[in-house]
Design a protein around this nucleic acid. Structure first.
Length: 724
RNA sequence: GCGAGGAUGGCGAAAUUGGUAGACGCACCAGCCUUAGGAGCUGGCGGUUAACACCAUGGGGGUUCGAGUCCCCCUCCUCGCACCA
């Protein structure tokens, strides 16, 4: 009696066997070449959803493929366990964030096992374990030692919903990336990482294969801009400050007819004249209330106020008014601009509205520069109204102007970046405490390394007050100063959870090391990641932070090489059958556990991969499951049921062998490029070819055995249980 | 506004460097089988047509012996970025 294909019998059986055999543990001393395959680890939200399967199952296929190709594959899994939802659960339902998180992890661990993925569970890590965050804190101290962590007062993004500050990368369209609340601007003293020190290097992607879209988004985010800083004297009695501006168009400096400072610019208070003070103060108050969204709206009409002060254009001695306006951002360049209304549309609109002078400094073949301009024209032919520079063609103008400025001490060529330093303080409880101590006598003192980890206290009360809940715990906050034992206080902010995910892939190489975050040997053996897979939504957050972190770690001598992940693949987003994002409120959720209970893990894995190209995502097709199940059934029958072996037609044998070898070739090709949908279709064709051979009468034993063996091997990465 | 990607049957999608458009699968239709099932098997399935044949890859032009693929224009969709001086 031949057994029928029954995933519910074979799947648990083989998963238990793999675990008992420790089959997928990647040993450090394995002589085969290593392959580090990594899929982004999940946040323990409580339930493993189809999105997780869509990200992880194909990653597992790729990892299994590499294993079959003779690599010593490490494919680890863990949990990105710090973060706000745990704390929100605590506030909402009175559950301890720790209990909530670890209960979720227990549940998700079980759900992950259903996938039949070849995870190396011996290397599992949980970022909220003291064994892990001890090293997160260690990195903080190292960064501090190397001048890459500092505390500063700055304009920061404040999320009123989350009651904490956010990094620039975590603000999307003026809203909190997590809670969607409109972000406010505040001036606070916070901890930063000096990611800008690596801006130039982060723009290079040498030696790594990352998607063009991610590279472009990172490059745009870093926003390198070449130009010059020019220095203008303030023409006011008793004030000898100079106003420094950044411009990409130093060649238009003779057309600078006024200046504009950001309302928050530190010189505003000093240069404002008594007559203008009231208007200026009112304007600053108004813009302070405006949200980032309102301020950045392109449609919005320009606003601004005259400070009463004047500056002197160092190139032509012109006395030009100094205004403040919120279209100038304090966070970019020097927070001040020279306004050239003839050649910059924003300045043009401002000048037109407030009746300021407009002086073109370029001739233009189709514009009458003597008549009033209808709009700014950014590019022209030759310089005019520019003294000795008149007649210079635009292509040569900037270099000439900068050389002049440099020679006369008026300015210099400068590169500016849009990228800001990474703000990592969070006024929240459920994160790794920043290992710093504030002492009245010694200032900021790092916690000595041998006192790590700074443990998160337990049994905390949660009231989102805008301050870390840790502030309330006097017994934790008050500590002796490490220098003289005198009274001091702990830093009560915790670290951005993106800090944990910036280095987790390093820890997987040596997850239980009590001495170091990673040993030299383990780092050398396993790092960097050979193939990283995950969502592209992290383009300018996690994927940028981890590159920065790696480069810093390299410069500390902890890791080798310039990049943390050699190859990156971004899968698409799997949607509900109705084409919308899966959500309980829409009722379009496909739950992996249900699918496994119904069809088996192999079928669900294959169906997710069969719906379309992996990087494209798209709606899940529940009816399509029938095709996958039919295929697995046909495959099973062909392999386990007896066939008539004997003298086959030469043509039939040849056709079978041809189909088998085409399948081998196609599988290799498709797997190398993550084309799982077409891979499955090729395997289906092979299955059909086998059926045809079997139904034609007797099969050639050698060709048949080869076809069976091949079908099983080629299917193994995709549907590991049935293949086993 | 700028940038990138996309538009192929009823549906998801295939299609090296230009070379039989629609592989594979779903759904559907017909038939077979059966203790009638969310089962299995066989065949059909872009459109018009009795057939021959013709038409067909968002729309319009072009290059070419030959275009889903290359070039130009247009429409729509998706995703980034967006007062960055």
């Amino acid at each position: 009696m031949v057994q029928r294909y029954d995933p519910h019998t074979i799947e648990p059986k083989w998963r238990a066997r793999w675990e008992a055999d420790n089959l997928y543990h990647a040993a450090d001393d394995d002589p085969r070449p290593k392959w580090y395959a990594l899929t982004m680890f999940p946040y323990p939200s409580g339930d493993l959803h189809t999105g997780h399967w869509y990200a992880m199952a194909p990653s597992d296929v790729a990892a299994r493929y590499k294993r079959m190709r003779g690599f010593n594959v490490m494919f680890p899994m863990g949990f990105d366990a710090f973060g706000l939802p745990a704390e929100n659960a605590a506030i909402k339902r009175g559950i301890d964030p720790r209990d909530w998180t670890y209960a979720n992890i227990d549940r998700m661990r079980g759900q992950l096992r259903l996938m039949g993925a070849s995870f190396d569970w011996e290397r599992e890590l949980v970022t909220s374990d003291p064994d892990f965050y001890r090293w997160t804190q260690w990195w903080f101290l190292e960064l501090y030692k190397h001048g890459l962590a500092y505390r500063a007062n700055a304009a920061v993004n404040w999320c009123p919903g989350c009651q904490t500050v956010l990094a620039n990368e975590q603000v999307l369209d003026g809203r909190c990336e997590r809670s969607d609340d409109i972000v406010e601007r505040k001036f606070l003293t916070q901890w930063f990482f000096r990611i800008t020190q690596y801006a130039e290097e982060l723009l290079r992607f040498d030696g790594i294969e990352w998607p063009e879209s991610i590279r472009t988004r990172q490059a745009n985010w870093i926003g390198r801009s070449e130009g010059a800083t020019l220095s203008f004297a303030v023409d006011a009695p008793g004030i000898d400050d100079r106003l420094t501006v950044f411009t990409t168009r130093p060649d238009t400096v003779f057309g600078a007819t006024f200046m504009v400072l950001a309302p928050e610019h530190p010189l505003v208070a000093r240069i404002t004249t008594p007559a203008q003070r009231a208007a200026v103060d009112q304007y600053i108050a108004a813009t302070g209330r405006a949200t980032e969204i309102e301020r950045l709206s392109t449609e919005r009409e320009k606003t601004g106020v005259f400070t009463g002060a004047y500056a002197v254009n160092p190139f032509n001695g012109a006395r030009i008014p100094v205004w403040i306006a919120d279209y100038v951002l304090v966070t970019y360049g020097t927070g001040a601009i020279m306004a050239v209304p003839a050649h910059d549309q924003r300045d043009f609109e401002f000048a037109t509205k407030f009746g300021l002078e407009i002086v073109p400094v370029y001739s233009h073949q189709s514009i009458d520069t003597a008549a009033p301009l209808a709009a700014a024209f950014p590019h022209g032919d030759r310089m005019i109204n520019s003294g000795d520079f008149d007649g210079t063609p635009e292509a040569e103008a900037s270099a000439k102007l900068v050389a002049f400025a440099q020679a006369h001490g008026l300015g210099e060529s400068t590169v500016t970046y849009r990228l800001r330093d990474w703000l990592i303080s969070r006024q929240r409880y459920w994160g790794a405490p920043i290992p710093m101590i504030h002492c009245e006598r010694h200032g900021i003192v790092p916690v000595p390394e041998d006192e790590l980890p700074v443990l998160l206290p337990e049994h905390v009360t949660f009231q989102p007050t805008g301050q870390s809940p840790l502030t309330e715990i006097e017994s934790w906050v008050n500590v002796p100063c490490p220098i003289d034992g005198g009274p001091a206080r702990r830093e009560t902010d915790t670290m951005d959870t993106f800090m944990c995910s910036s280095w987790y892939q390093i820890r997987y190489a040596d997850p239980h090391n009590p001495e170091r975050p990673v040993s030299r040997d383990a780092a050398h053996q396993w790092l960097p990641v050979d193939q990283y897979t995950g969502g592209g939504e992290h383009a300018v957050m996690h994927l940028l932070y981890t590159r920065f972190f790696w480069k810093a770690a390299r410069d500390m001598g902890v890791v080798e090489g310039d990049e943390p992940m050699k190859r990156l693949f971004n899968q698409g987003v799997i949607l509900g059958p109705d084409g919308n994002r899966m959500s309980k409120s829409r009722g379009n959720v496909v739950a992996p556990d249900d699918q496994v209970a119904k069809w088996g893990a192999d079928a669900f894995r294959c169906q997710l991969m069969f719906v379309g190209p992996w990087d494209q995502g798209g709606p899940y097709n529940p009816t399509g499951m029938a095709g996958i199940v039919r295929w697995l059934n046909r495959l099973w029958s062909l392999v386990v049921e007896p066939v008539s072996r004997g003298k086959a037609e030469a043509d039939a044998t040849r056709a079978l062998r041809r189909a088998t070898h085409q399948a081998i070739r196609a599988t290799t090709e498709e797997l190398e490029h993550f084309r799982f949908n077409t891979l499955i279709s090729r395997l289906m064709e092979h299955t059909t070819a086998m059926q045809r051979a079997r139904d034609a009468g007797a099969v050639d034993p050698a060709a048949w055995d080869e076809a069976v063996k091949t079908a099983v091997l080629l299917t193994a990465p995709l549907a590991p249980h049935i293949a086993e």
